[in-house]
Nucleic acid binder design. Structure first.
Lengths: 142, 142
DNA sequence: CTCGATATTTCATGTTGTCAAGCAACCGGG
DNA sequence: CCCGGTTGCTTGACAACATGAAATATCGAG
């Protein structure tokens, strides 16, 4: 039998759940401000950094490639993203942010206030401690 | 020039994003183990604590009541949840977990390993520090 | 009793997600 | 070269989730 979770761990898990809920809420809200869904905002943010093959987007989003087709379709229909051929492999289609897409992505990341808001109450030193703890939490992955 | 968000805060935000992504992944996975979707698991977990009016579920899920109708429909079709009349107000329908629902909810929460896995690497003292930092992050949002 | 507010459902619609099937293009061994 | 297997993407059918508007039933105040 698995040992029971102690009260402290339980509380930390609940706090993490609260952080997750709040992060999501703010992310969707920020995306909606630009008439984007969460998934669309995520893809646009990825493509604002560099063009990516459809397959790669699916890997990063942990979903099926056929799903990415639809999301990119909608972004493309709004002129935020375009599909380009890959010069080295004609099977591959590179999704890339257009100028309008880059602009939207920029304004989107500015309105992601999750950064400033909840972390504002912590000192630089405390943020450093938090960073180290989160790093170690994520470090040993499965 | 002073960046809008310093590098340390940026990194903490990225780490939080990673935690959020991982939390979701594991939550969906745990739900899928019991043939539930994430939304269904969430509602079932709520109802395992106490019966709730449809409207209240919608508030807790931050979605429209009409959406809850469908989710509860699916849970009810599988015998995990039932709708009861509210003795005090005949407009209200109380969604309540059945015995089977309570059983599933119990096994579900056991398989939510997010607790043990990533936190296992931290000492009790470190978990205490993490708890305090998260509390303050969520506290007032000031 | 009547009127407005509340609780839920139904319907239409759109987005996200899966899976299976299909097509085009790459790549290896003959 | 060509052939067969693999890879990358799209299409189609379908389910779940989400919203908004409209319908129904009930409550509560005047």
């Amino acid at each position: 039998m698995v040992p029971r979770i102690d009260a402290l761990t339980r509380e930390v898990v609940d706090l993490i759940a609260a952080v997750v809920a709040r992060y999501h809420e703010e992310y969707e809200e920020a995306a909606a401000k630009h008439a984007l869904t969460g998934a669309q905002a995520k893809v646009l943010a990825l493509l604002a950094r560099e063009p990516l093959p459809m397959r790669r987007i699916a890997q990063l989003l942990k979903c099926e490639p056929s799903n990415v087709t639809g999301i990119v379709d909608r972004l493309e229909a709004r002129g935020l993203v375009e599909r380009r051929p890959d010069p080295d492999d004609r099977r591959i289609k590179l999704a890339a942010a257009t100028a309008a897409g880059l602009d939207t992505a920029g304004r989107l990341s500015e309105s992601l206030d999750f950064a400033r808001e909840p972390l504002a109450g912590l000192s630089a030193e405390e943020r450093g401690v938090l960073r180290d703890l989160l790093r170690r939490m994520l470090g040993t992955g499965a």
